[in-house]
Design a protein around this nucleic acid. Structure first.
Lengths: 118, 118
DNA sequence: ACCTCACATGCTCAGATACTCAATTGTCAT
DNA sequence: ATGACAATTGAGTATCTGAGCATGTGAGGT
């Protein structure tokens, strides 16, 4: 709508239009932010890291993280919604795994970044 | 502390201890979650994507995203804290850029994931 | 000195979020 | 059927978060 430009009219305007035309769709940015939001929680990132090591049932996940099964289940709901995990039922148990390797890569990339910051 | 194991005592216990020993430190997980949290917001991920295209001053970022400079500045504060952006002052303006290529890679990886989901 | 502009920062608050507790569903064993 | 257990779900609560507004800071321009 209203574009209140700052001083540098030439270079400024050029940059703005260049960047504007390079931006993604609202939908893409929404999905992207949802994805990172799902990873952006201490509990959930530990859950995903754990599942990257081995498939686990809810109870085992709760044990690994020393949290209540209810809390874990609530978070698994979000991870399912973000399509970051898959599950299979077996008797009374439900076993969760990572949905694909992208998640593994994302966490790996994230660790690289974190560890370069001394 | 209290480990209320579910049924499968053999395989279950083996998985739990395997995963437990493979987990990272609390500090690593905290930094990781902080990193993804910084990316996990519609406004911030757009800001980072924009900065990945070209260095921009606060005003230009505000213009690109059609938001108030104040709102942008608040978010830039978080991105600085997460060490995702760098800045240089030039006269009255402050120009922001991505801190390194990890961010670019993370967003790229994220897009790959998003786009594989139909 | 003054004003203006670019940006940062408190303060505030509506909305979101994560966990606890209690209740429910679904499965297996007796 | 009944009881036990794994998991989910809903309600309630405490906390966090994003953005608006007002104000503060600092660099230029006059």
């Amino acid at each position: 709508m209203s574009n209140i430009a700052c001083g540098n009219t030439e270079q400024h305007a050029a940059n703005v239009s260049q960047v504007r035309s390079g931006m993604l769709s609202e939908r893409d940015f929404l999905f992207l932010s949802e994805l990172f939001k799902a990873l952006g929680d201490y509990t959930r990132v530990r859950m995903l890291y754990a599942l990257a090591i081995h498939e686990l049932c809810v109870c085992a996940l709760a044990e690994v993280l020393d949290m209540s099964p209810s809390a874990i289940s609530h978070q698994l709901r979000l991870l399912r919604a973000a399509r970051l995990v898959r599950y299979r039922k077996e008797g009374k148990n439900v076993y969760y795994t990572l949905d694909d390797d992208h998640v593994r890569n994302l966490i790996g990339q994230g660790l690289d970044h974190v560890r370069e910051q001394g």
